[in-house]
Design a protein around this nucleic acid. Structure first.
Lengths: 158, 158
DNA sequence: CCCAATTATGAATAAATATTCCTAACATGA
DNA sequence: TCATGTTAGGAATATTTATTCATAATTGGG
Protein backbone atom coordinates (compact mmCIF):
# COMPACT_ATOMS: atom_id res chain seq x y z
CA UNK A 1 0.00 0.00 0.00
CA UNK A 2 1.25 3.36 -1.04
CA UNK A 3 0.24 5.46 1.93
CA UNK A 4 1.83 3.13 4.40
CA UNK A 5 5.10 2.83 2.53
CA UNK A 6 5.36 6.55 2.16
CA UNK A 7 4.72 6.88 5.84
CA UNK A 8 7.38 4.32 6.71
CA UNK A 9 9.86 6.12 4.51
CA UNK A 10 8.99 9.44 6.10
CA UNK A 11 9.39 7.85 9.49
CA UNK A 12 12.87 6.63 8.61
CA UNK A 13 13.79 10.09 7.47
CA UNK A 14 12.45 11.71 10.59
CA UNK A 15 14.25 9.28 12.86
CA UNK A 16 17.49 9.56 10.96
CA UNK A 17 17.49 13.31 11.09
CA UNK A 18 15.92 14.24 14.39
CA UNK A 19 16.27 13.10 17.96
CA UNK A 20 12.82 12.25 19.15
CA UNK A 21 12.17 10.38 22.35
CA UNK A 22 8.56 9.25 22.42
CA UNK A 23 5.95 8.01 20.04
CA UNK A 24 3.99 11.11 20.81
CA UNK A 25 6.80 13.23 19.39
CA UNK A 26 7.19 10.99 16.37
CA UNK A 27 3.47 11.18 15.84
CA UNK A 28 3.58 14.97 15.88
CA UNK A 29 6.46 14.97 13.39
CA UNK A 30 4.60 12.63 11.06
CA UNK A 31 1.47 14.68 11.32
CA UNK A 32 3.39 17.79 10.45
CA UNK A 33 4.34 15.93 7.26
CA UNK A 34 0.68 15.38 6.55
CA UNK A 35 0.26 11.80 7.71
CA UNK A 36 -2.83 11.01 9.70
CA UNK A 37 -2.46 8.08 12.08
CA UNK A 38 -2.69 7.09 15.72
CA UNK A 39 -0.16 5.91 18.23
CA UNK A 40 -1.30 2.33 17.68
CA UNK A 41 -0.33 2.43 14.05
CA UNK A 42 2.91 4.18 14.81
CA UNK A 43 3.82 1.47 17.29
CA UNK A 44 3.23 -1.11 14.59
CA UNK A 45 5.27 0.88 12.08
CA UNK A 46 8.16 1.11 14.49
CA UNK A 47 8.03 -2.60 15.08
CA UNK A 48 8.08 -3.27 11.37
CA UNK A 49 11.00 -0.94 10.77
CA UNK A 50 12.74 -2.46 13.78
CA UNK A 51 13.30 0.96 15.18
CA UNK A 52 14.69 0.91 18.70
CA UNK A 53 14.47 3.27 21.58
CA UNK A 54 17.68 3.83 23.48
CA UNK A 55 19.04 6.26 26.00
CA UNK A 56 21.05 9.07 24.49
CA UNK A 57 24.16 10.70 25.85
CA UNK A 58 22.10 13.59 27.07
CA UNK A 59 20.06 11.45 29.43
CA UNK A 60 16.98 11.35 27.27
CA UNK A 61 15.64 8.61 25.10
CA UNK A 62 15.97 8.59 21.33
CA UNK A 63 14.52 6.41 18.64
CA UNK A 64 17.25 4.89 16.49
CA UNK A 65 17.27 3.03 13.20
CA UNK A 66 18.43 -0.57 13.22
CA UNK A 67 21.75 -1.83 11.92
CA UNK A 68 23.35 -5.20 11.36
CA UNK A 69 25.63 -5.24 14.32
CA UNK A 70 23.04 -4.62 16.94
CA UNK A 71 21.53 -8.04 16.46
CA UNK A 72 24.78 -9.90 16.75
CA UNK A 73 24.91 -12.35 19.62
CA UNK A 74 28.02 -13.98 20.95
CA UNK A 75 27.71 -17.69 20.47
CA UNK A 76 28.77 -19.67 23.51
CA UNK A 77 30.24 -19.26 26.98
CA UNK A 78 33.56 -20.66 25.71
CA UNK A 79 33.90 -17.84 23.22
CA UNK A 80 36.93 -16.53 25.06
CA UNK A 81 38.77 -19.77 24.46
CA UNK A 82 37.59 -19.83 20.89
CA UNK A 83 38.89 -16.34 20.35
CA UNK A 84 42.35 -17.54 21.32
CA UNK A 85 42.42 -20.16 18.63
CA UNK A 86 42.68 -17.92 15.63
CA UNK A 87 43.13 -14.44 16.97
CA UNK A 88 41.67 -11.77 14.79
CA UNK A 89 39.14 -13.82 12.92
CA UNK A 90 35.68 -12.26 13.00
CA UNK A 91 33.42 -13.63 10.30
CA UNK A 92 33.21 -15.19 6.88
CA UNK A 93 30.54 -14.67 4.26
CA UNK A 94 30.11 -15.73 0.69
CA UNK A 95 28.70 -14.17 -2.41
CA UNK A 96 28.89 -15.90 -5.72
CA UNK A 97 32.40 -17.19 -6.26
CA UNK A 98 33.85 -14.96 -3.58
CA UNK A 99 34.34 -15.26 0.13
CA UNK A 100 34.84 -12.30 2.40
CA UNK A 101 36.57 -12.70 5.74
CA UNK A 102 36.41 -9.89 8.22
CA UNK A 103 39.16 -9.73 10.82
CA UNK A 104 40.23 -7.45 13.58
CA UNK A 105 42.24 -4.53 12.25
CA UNK A 106 45.68 -5.63 11.17
CA UNK A 107 45.04 -9.37 11.20
CA UNK A 108 43.92 -9.82 7.62
CA UNK A 109 47.26 -10.40 5.98
CA UNK A 110 48.47 -13.00 8.45
CA UNK A 111 45.27 -15.00 8.20
CA UNK A 112 45.39 -14.74 4.43
CA UNK A 113 48.95 -15.97 4.50
CA UNK A 114 47.82 -19.01 6.44
CA UNK A 115 45.09 -19.72 3.94
CA UNK A 116 47.42 -19.29 0.99
CA UNK A 117 49.93 -21.69 2.50
CA UNK A 118 47.39 -24.34 3.33
CA UNK A 119 47.09 -25.29 -0.29
CA UNK A 120 43.34 -25.58 -0.30
CA UNK A 121 42.37 -26.68 -3.79
CA UNK A 122 38.96 -25.02 -3.56
CA UNK A 123 40.59 -21.64 -3.10
CA UNK A 124 42.23 -20.05 -6.10
CA UNK A 125 43.72 -17.19 -4.18
CA UNK A 126 43.26 -14.48 -1.60
CA UNK A 127 43.97 -10.83 -1.29
CA UNK A 128 44.09 -9.04 2.03
CA UNK A 129 43.56 -5.50 3.14
CA UNK A 130 43.84 -4.44 6.74
CA UNK A 131 40.76 -6.08 8.19
CA UNK A 132 39.25 -7.79 5.17
CA UNK A 133 40.23 -10.75 3.02
CA UNK A 134 38.78 -11.53 -0.37
CA UNK A 135 38.87 -15.16 -1.42
CA UNK A 136 38.25 -16.38 -4.92
CA UNK A 137 36.66 -19.82 -4.96
CA UNK A 138 37.29 -22.39 -7.66
CA UNK A 139 34.44 -22.72 -10.09
CA UNK A 140 32.04 -25.45 -9.10
CA UNK A 141 33.01 -25.54 -5.42
CA UNK A 142 30.28 -24.94 -2.86
CA UNK A 143 30.57 -22.56 0.05
CA UNK A 144 30.01 -25.46 2.38
CA UNK A 145 32.97 -27.26 0.93
CA UNK A 146 35.15 -24.22 1.47
CA UNK A 147 33.84 -23.65 4.97
CA UNK A 148 34.47 -27.24 5.94
CA UNK A 149 38.04 -27.08 4.72
CA UNK A 150 38.77 -23.72 6.28
CA UNK A 151 37.29 -24.76 9.60
CA UNK A 152 40.04 -27.33 9.93
CA UNK A 153 42.37 -24.56 10.94
CA UNK A 154 39.90 -21.89 11.98
CA UNK A 155 37.97 -23.81 14.66
CA UNK A 156 35.99 -20.79 15.73
CA UNK A 157 34.64 -20.35 12.27
CA UNK A 158 31.34 -22.09 12.90
CA UNK B 1 29.83 0.67 43.81
CA UNK B 2 30.83 -2.91 43.33
CA UNK B 3 27.46 -4.63 43.32
CA UNK B 4 26.05 -2.30 40.74
CA UNK B 5 29.01 -2.55 38.39
CA UNK B 6 28.98 -6.30 38.57
CA UNK B 7 25.32 -6.25 37.81
CA UNK B 8 25.76 -3.96 34.83
CA UNK B 9 28.48 -6.21 33.52
CA UNK B 10 26.30 -9.27 33.97
CA UNK B 11 23.49 -7.46 32.22
CA UNK B 12 25.70 -6.72 29.23
CA UNK B 13 26.69 -10.35 29.06
CA UNK B 14 23.13 -11.55 29.26
CA UNK B 15 21.99 -9.17 26.57
CA UNK B 16 24.87 -9.97 24.28
CA UNK B 17 24.31 -13.69 24.51
CA UNK B 18 20.57 -14.17 24.81
CA UNK B 19 17.53 -12.77 23.10
CA UNK B 20 15.29 -11.44 25.79
CA UNK B 21 12.33 -9.26 25.07
CA UNK B 22 11.10 -7.71 28.29
CA UNK B 23 12.51 -6.35 31.49
CA UNK B 24 10.71 -9.13 33.27
CA UNK B 25 12.78 -11.67 31.37
CA UNK B 26 15.99 -9.75 31.93
CA UNK B 27 15.11 -9.53 35.58
CA UNK B 28 14.67 -13.28 35.78
CA UNK B 29 18.01 -13.83 34.03
CA UNK B 30 19.76 -11.49 36.43
CA UNK B 31 18.16 -13.13 39.39
CA UNK B 32 19.30 -16.50 38.17
CA UNK B 33 22.80 -15.03 38.34
CA UNK B 34 22.18 -14.12 41.93
CA UNK B 35 21.36 -10.43 41.62
CA UNK B 36 18.48 -9.14 43.63
CA UNK B 37 16.78 -6.07 42.22
CA UNK B 38 13.46 -4.74 40.99
CA UNK B 39 12.19 -3.67 37.62
CA UNK B 40 12.72 -0.03 38.57
CA UNK B 41 16.42 -0.56 39.07
CA UNK B 42 16.67 -2.59 35.94
CA UNK B 43 15.07 0.19 33.96
CA UNK B 44 17.68 2.57 35.31
CA UNK B 45 20.47 0.13 34.52
CA UNK B 46 19.25 -0.23 30.97
CA UNK B 47 19.11 3.50 30.56
CA UNK B 48 22.64 3.86 31.87
CA UNK B 49 23.96 1.15 29.55
CA UNK B 50 22.00 2.70 26.70
CA UNK B 51 20.48 -0.64 25.94
CA UNK B 52 17.72 -0.46 23.36
CA UNK B 53 14.70 -2.55 22.67
CA UNK B 54 14.01 -3.33 19.04
CA UNK B 55 11.88 -5.70 17.04
CA UNK B 56 13.70 -8.84 15.95
CA UNK B 57 13.39 -10.73 12.70
CA UNK B 58 11.12 -13.24 14.40
CA UNK B 59 8.48 -10.68 15.23
CA UNK B 60 9.37 -10.40 18.89
CA UNK B 61 11.21 -7.69 20.70
CA UNK B 62 14.84 -8.00 21.80
CA UNK B 63 17.06 -5.89 23.95
CA UNK B 64 20.21 -4.88 22.10
CA UNK B 65 23.48 -3.33 23.15
CA UNK B 66 24.30 0.09 21.80
CA UNK B 67 26.81 0.79 19.06
CA UNK B 68 28.29 3.88 17.53
CA UNK B 69 26.38 3.85 14.31
CA UNK B 70 22.94 3.75 15.81
CA UNK B 71 23.27 7.27 17.09
CA UNK B 72 24.31 8.73 13.78
CA UNK B 73 22.01 11.36 12.43
CA UNK B 74 22.19 12.52 8.85
CA UNK B 75 22.51 16.09 10.03
CA UNK B 76 25.91 15.08 11.35
CA UNK B 77 27.53 14.30 8.00
CA UNK B 78 27.16 10.63 7.26
CA UNK B 79 30.26 8.84 6.14
CA UNK B 80 28.92 7.69 2.80
CA UNK B 81 27.78 11.15 2.05
CA UNK B 82 31.16 12.42 3.11
CA UNK B 83 32.68 9.96 0.75
CA UNK B 84 30.74 11.32 -2.16
CA UNK B 85 31.57 14.87 -1.25
CA UNK B 86 35.25 14.06 -0.88
CA UNK B 87 37.12 15.09 -4.03
CA UNK B 88 38.77 11.66 -4.20
CA UNK B 89 35.68 9.86 -5.40
CA UNK B 90 35.47 9.36 -9.16
CA UNK B 91 33.03 6.63 -10.14
CA UNK B 92 31.31 3.43 -9.18
CA UNK B 93 30.46 0.48 -11.46
CA UNK B 94 29.21 -3.02 -10.97
CA UNK B 95 29.90 -6.43 -12.44
CA UNK B 96 28.23 -9.54 -11.12
CA UNK B 97 28.47 -9.58 -7.37
CA UNK B 98 31.23 -7.00 -7.34
CA UNK B 99 31.42 -3.27 -7.40
CA UNK B 100 34.43 -1.21 -8.40
CA UNK B 101 34.99 2.31 -7.21
CA UNK B 102 37.61 4.44 -8.85
CA UNK B 103 39.16 7.25 -6.86
CA UNK B 104 41.93 9.76 -7.27
CA UNK B 105 45.34 8.31 -6.42
CA UNK B 106 45.73 7.73 -2.69
CA UNK B 107 42.10 8.15 -1.75
CA UNK B 108 40.92 4.57 -2.02
CA UNK B 109 41.65 3.32 1.48
CA UNK B 110 40.02 6.19 3.29
CA UNK B 111 36.89 5.94 1.19
CA UNK B 112 36.81 2.18 1.71
CA UNK B 113 37.10 2.76 5.42
CA UNK B 114 34.06 4.98 5.26
CA UNK B 115 32.08 2.33 3.45
CA UNK B 116 33.11 -0.36 5.92
CA UNK B 117 32.01 1.77 8.80
CA UNK B 118 28.67 2.64 7.33
CA UNK B 119 27.25 -0.76 8.15
CA UNK B 120 25.60 -1.38 4.82
CA UNK B 121 24.24 -4.93 5.07
CA UNK B 122 24.28 -5.42 1.31
CA UNK B 123 28.06 -5.02 1.26
CA UNK B 124 30.08 -7.96 2.56
CA UNK B 125 33.38 -6.18 2.48
CA UNK B 126 35.78 -3.97 0.60
CA UNK B 127 39.42 -4.04 -0.28
CA UNK B 128 41.26 -0.95 -1.40
CA UNK B 129 44.34 -0.45 -3.47
CA UNK B 130 45.65 2.99 -4.18
CA UNK B 131 42.99 4.34 -6.51
CA UNK B 132 40.57 1.41 -6.73
CA UNK B 133 38.19 -0.27 -4.32
CA UNK B 134 36.67 -3.68 -4.80
CA UNK B 135 33.34 -4.30 -3.13
CA UNK B 136 31.73 -7.69 -2.68
CA UNK B 137 27.96 -7.53 -2.67
CA UNK B 138 25.86 -9.88 -0.59
CA UNK B 139 24.26 -12.68 -2.53
CA UNK B 140 20.72 -11.91 -3.58
CA UNK B 141 21.29 -8.20 -3.44
CA UNK B 142 21.14 -6.55 -6.80
CA UNK B 143 23.39 -3.69 -7.66
CA UNK B 144 20.22 -1.71 -7.84
CA UNK B 145 19.60 -2.52 -4.20
CA UNK B 146 23.08 -1.35 -3.32
CA UNK B 147 22.53 1.85 -5.23
CA UNK B 148 19.18 2.23 -3.48
CA UNK B 149 20.90 2.01 -0.13
CA UNK B 150 23.61 4.39 -1.15
CA UNK B 151 21.07 6.76 -2.58
CA UNK B 152 19.53 7.05 0.84
CA UNK B 153 22.62 9.10 1.55
CA UNK B 154 23.23 10.42 -1.95
CA UNK B 155 20.01 11.69 -3.51
CA UNK B 156 21.55 12.39 -6.91
CA UNK B 157 23.00 8.90 -7.30
CA UNK B 158 19.86 7.20 -8.59
C1' DC C 1 -16.86 -6.23 -11.51
C1' DC C 2 -17.48 -9.07 -7.38
C1' DC C 3 -16.01 -11.73 -3.73
C1' DA C 4 -12.83 -13.71 -0.61
C1' DA C 5 -8.70 -13.02 1.59
C1' DT C 6 -5.43 -10.24 3.18
C1' DT C 7 -3.77 -5.93 5.12
C1' DA C 8 -4.27 -1.57 7.49
C1' DT C 9 -6.10 1.02 11.12
C1' DG C 10 -8.47 3.21 15.29
C1' DA C 11 -10.35 2.97 19.97
C1' DA C 12 -9.81 1.00 24.02
C1' DT C 13 -7.12 -1.47 26.97
C1' DA C 14 -3.48 -4.34 28.62
C1' DA C 15 1.16 -4.55 29.34
C1' DA C 16 5.53 -2.74 29.86
C1' DT C 17 8.56 0.74 31.30
C1' DA C 18 10.20 5.23 33.34
C1' DT C 19 10.04 8.23 37.06
C1' DT C 20 8.82 10.23 41.51
C1' DC C 21 9.46 10.18 46.12
C1' DC C 22 11.55 8.37 49.75
C1' DT C 23 14.88 5.84 52.61
C1' DA C 24 19.15 3.51 53.18
C1' DA C 25 23.92 2.75 52.24
C1' DC C 26 28.18 4.57 51.38
C1' DA C 27 32.14 7.83 50.91
C1' DT C 28 34.87 11.65 52.44
C1' DG C 29 36.97 15.27 54.77
C1' DA C 30 37.58 17.56 59.21
C1' DT D 1 34.08 9.53 64.74
C1' DC D 2 30.55 12.54 62.93
C1' DA D 3 28.34 15.37 59.64
C1' DT D 4 27.31 15.87 55.05
C1' DG D 5 26.97 15.13 50.27
C1' DT D 6 26.27 11.58 46.91
C1' DT D 7 24.75 7.37 44.95
C1' DA D 8 21.72 3.29 44.98
C1' DG D 9 17.48 1.28 45.10
C1' DG D 10 12.48 -0.09 46.38
C1' DA D 11 7.33 0.86 46.24
C1' DA D 12 4.08 3.07 44.12
C1' DT D 13 2.70 5.48 40.32
C1' DA D 14 2.69 7.99 35.99
C1' DT D 15 3.75 7.46 31.47
C1' DT D 16 4.51 5.18 27.46
C1' DT D 17 3.97 1.54 24.32
C1' DA D 18 2.01 -2.94 22.53
C1' DT D 19 -1.91 -5.55 21.61
C1' DT D 20 -6.77 -6.86 21.28
C1' DC D 21 -10.87 -6.48 19.09
C1' DA D 22 -13.46 -4.76 15.63
C1' DT D 23 -14.01 -2.40 11.02
C1' DA D 24 -12.60 -0.51 6.96
C1' DA D 25 -9.75 -0.51 3.02
C1' DT D 26 -7.23 -2.90 -0.56
C1' DT D 27 -5.67 -6.60 -3.43
C1' DG D 28 -5.86 -10.58 -6.43
C1' DG D 29 -8.24 -14.05 -8.55
C1' DG D 30 -12.49 -15.53 -11.21
Amino acid sequence: MKVKNNRLEALRMIISSQQLGSQEELLAALQKEGFRLTQATLSRDLKQLKVAKAASMSGNYVYVLPNETMYKRVSTPNSVREMMEVPGFLSINFSGNMGVIKTRPGYASSIAWNIDNSDIPQILGTIAGDDTIFIVIREGCSKREVTETLSRFIPNMK
